[in-house]
Write a protein that binds this DNA or RNA. Structure first.
Lengths: 121, 121
DNA sequence: CCCTTATTCAACCCAACGGTTGACAAAGTC
DNA sequence: GACTTTGTCAACCGTTGGGTTGAATAAGGG
């Protein structure tokens, strides 16, 4: 799992980390402040942040002893691009399929008719 | 990790599964056909499909011995919504921050000035 | 200098993941 | 009815993930 996209998806697969991201959209935060709401050790939170950082979702600076955590919005685009690309394709095909099915109605029984039972129709 | 959003993100964190999704946007496919390009056992692919199915990304029907796999485009919206929501917020805050920083220039030194080093200047 | 605050590192534990192989089930074909 | 195709189930195995605790580091503050 070396590629960034995998790391980003994996990072967001955890509800705690998603919540952290959500809270970081409001304001930068220290590790301690971030940890407060959760019922886990500070070290666990630190680990979560490492995961988010390695995914490029977050960056950390230094401010005295504190390590303020900052959300990097750019990475979201990476996901959005991937998702949007295939979502569009899937929806396109959805329409095309309907057309095909409609066309098939005019003939006998098709040889490659897949998708007998599904969500649609 | 019971919630769907977690399952969806986790499912897409695997490159093989993302590739399967990508290929399924082109056409429904049988397990065998889906497995062909990958250098793993059929059982492994079957497991991957189970993960995708439990995430709601895919549905399976029956066609003789075959179990055609079909991509469910709707779930993508779930992710898109989550992502877009926080991306927008993050970007908004990005602008607001600039305003705040500009405002601070007119005063002395701030007490809560976080984000000393970051991506943005 | 010592002490407190803020955070990370290291070692460990257990559950989950991705892979394997072997057996089984379901449906069509001969 | 036996055989083939298509796929899943079950048991197992090594690795990773999220959690813990305890010690270490970094930077102020008294």
């Amino acid at each position: 799992m070396t590629d960034q996209l995998s790391r980003v998806f994996a990072a967001l697969a955890d509800p705690t980390r998603r919540d952290m991201v959500a809270r970081l959209t409001v304001a930068d935060s220290t590790v301690n402040d971030l940890a407060a709401p959760y019922d886990v050790s500070l070290q666990a939170v630190s680990k979560h942040l490492k995961v988010l950082e390695e995914a490029g979702l977050v960056s950390r600076s230094r401010e005295a002893q504190r390590r303020p955590v900052h959300l990097e919005a750019e990475v979201f685009d990476l996901m959005t691009k991937w998702i949007e690309r295939y979502r569009r394709q899937a929806e396109e095909r959805f329409s095309r399929l309907d057309a095909v099915l409609a066309a098939m109605d005019e003939e006998g029984n098709p040889t490659t008719g897949i998708r007998t039972e599904g969500t649609a129709s």
